[in-house]
């Protein structure tokens, strides 16, 4: 039991592969910074997703080849990207109309904490000397149809990120639908955290012990 909880279960890439399987063909998707970005590498065969980046591009493609980038063609993380055939550029009010107006199907975000009621904290630790910075996170969680969180189940210190109530400043209330971690796939329901699937080799007790709120076991009608 010397492994840290972050080294158990799925790797970051395996988490991204698992989440990508649950995105329907033709979805318009916004991917946050970090593990969410990996999802674009693992689109299941036969499916097409259109990526939205809130700074003003629908149809975002991969990073450009070295030396072929344009400093004015970037993603929300300010990294150079490309535009796929059929892409569109637009200004910020249109971009956030897509977000707030419920036109995007899915947003995948990282998390500091998620509560059993679906509250998300992912923009600030609330440290007094920190420079507060929010970007588009609050708009995304307020407006996109489905919000999936992809995150390590615990912090580096082994503390649960899935909690009864968030202690960090909130990004939004009751907005998270599903959580994909290295240990499990969990749905946020009216009854709280509902286990949907365990990562290979992980048992229920192991996940429940590392979850900061009650975890409902797999239902009989789920595999």
């Amino acid at each position: 039991m010397t492994n840290s909880p972050q080294q158990v279960g799925r790797t970051r890439d395996e988490m991204a592969i698992r989440l990508a399987q649950d995105i329907p063909d033709g979805s318009y998707v916004n991917l946050g910074i970090g593990i969410p970005e990996l999802i674009a590498k693992y689109v299941p065969e036969g499916r097409e997703f259109i990526y939205h980046t809130e700074n003003g591009l629908l149809g975002m493609g991969p990073s450009p080849e070295s030396g072929l980038g344009d400093p004015e063609l970037i993603n929300a993380g300010k990294r150079q990207v490309t535009a796929i055939p059929g892409a569109a550029y637009f200004h910020h009010a249109d971009s956030f109309a897509m977000i707030r107006g419920g036109h995007l199907d899915l947003c995948v975000l990282g998390a500091l904490q998620v509560s059993s009621g679906g509250d998300l904290a992912n923009w600030s630790t609330g440290a007094p000397d920190a420079i507060p910075a929010v970007g588009g996170a609050m708009d995304l969680v307020a407006g996109v149809k489905s919000i999936y969180v992809i995150t390590q189940h615990c912090t580096k210190n082994g503390e649960p990120k899935l909690v009864q109530a968030c202690t960090f400043p909130l990004t939004g209330c009751g907005i998270v639908n599903r959580i994909y971690t290295n240990l499990a796939v969990i749905e946020v329901t009216a009854e709280g955290f509902q286990l949907i699937e365990l990562s290979p080799g992980i048992d229920f007790e192991y996940v429940a012990e590392r979850t900061g709120a009650p975890l409902l076991p797999l239902k009989d009608n789920t595999k």
């Binding site: 910020h92 009010a93 971009s95 956030f96 707030r100 929010v134 588009g136 609050m138 708009d139 407006g143």
Partner: peptide
């Protein structure tokens, strides 16, 4: 001084 505004709210306030 800093007034922190969510990005979409900032855009809409300007529009």
């Amino acid at each position: 001084e800093l007034e922190l505004v969510p990005q979409g709210t900032l855009a809409e306030r300007i529009r």
